[in-house]
């Protein structure tokens, strides 16, 4: 997946300017930065929810905006988990996981049930299949959202702030789950977060955005950025976040 010279924003307001990077197959890339730096905006551009003013988002050598079919093809190969899990409240957990299988495959009801349960099992929620999303905890909702995102075996999994609203232990479990899915299935992962613990625990590479720069100010492994970045904004980000985490604990 590649982003080439992407420029975009909201209304008249420029948020991202000339952003370029690539995500290699099987790696975990974390997009980080302070609140308001454009992480979520970049994610929305990557997912094709917002059209860039300029530049391209390329998946499997095709610009996703080149045709509706290209967009649809790309989305079939992606899985997205939203901050809240975004499960449909009027369906049970298992029905949520079955949704994409019903929509995009010609499997029978029995086959769909088998696949959906096996996906829920992967995230450790097979016993909560018949629960309403409203009856399970926030962490479980995110895991169920992950099972739904994995239903069609996506090549790329996108996570928007997966740790938001979770306690450190649950958050660490979710990180382990993401890591294990990445290792066992070779799924590429793009994750938007500002949680330092997650960044260090799971990312292979980090891309850091900055609001004033309207784009990327650093890239590398988490340790490289923390230990040897020449950019004071990068150091400040890691120091401040680390200090806050230290205080919390």
């Amino acid at each position: 997946m590649k982003v080439e010279g992407l420029q975009g924003g909201w209304g008249e307001q420029l948020v991202l300017d000339d952003v370029s990077f690539s995500v290699e197959k099987g790696e975990i890339v974390a997009i980080v930065g302070k609140s308001g730096c454009g992480k979520s905006t970049l994610m929305q551009h990557l997912l094709g929810l917002v059209k860039p003013w300029r530049g391209r988002v390329v998946f499997r050598e095709t610009d996703i905006w080149s045709s509706p079919e290209a967009m649809q093809r790309a989305r079939r190969r992606w899985g997205v988990t939203f901050q809240s899990g975004a499960l449909l409240g009027n369906l049970t957990v298992i029905e949520n996981v079955k949704l994409p299988l019903k929509e995009y495959t010609d499997l029978t009801e029995d086959e769909i049930a088998t696949v959906a349960y096996s996906k829920l099992d992967t995230v450790g929620l097979a016993d909560f299949a018949d629960s309403s999303p409203l009856e399970v905890s926030g962490g479980m909702q995110k895991r169920a959202g992950l099972a739904r995102a994995m239903a069609l075996d996506p090549e790329v999994l996108f996570f928007d702030e997966p740790s938001a609203g979770l306690d450190p232990v649950t958050s660490a479990h979710l990180d382990d789950l993401i890591r294990s899915i990445n290792r066992s299935l070779g799924t590429t992962v793009v994750i938007v977060t500002h949680e330092l613990a997650s960044i260090f625990a799971i990312s292979d590479r980090v891309i850091m955005l900055d609001a004033e720069a309207h784009g990327i100010i650093a890239r590398g492994t988490a340790r490289e950025l923390r230990d040897s970045s020449g950019d004071s904004r990068v150091r400040a980000f890691f120091r401040r976040e680390a200090a806050e985490e230290g205080k919390d604990s």
Binding site: E109, A113, T114, S118, D121, T122, S184
Partner: peptide, 21 residues
């Protein structure tokens, strides 16, 4: 291993559709 684990998982939940019906 990845293929084996998928088939194992499918075997584990094989009868769920029937139970739901």
């Amino acid at each position: 291993a990845s293929v084996e684990s998928i088939f194992e998982s499918l075997a584990k939940f094989d009868s769920r559709g029937m139970e739901e019906r």
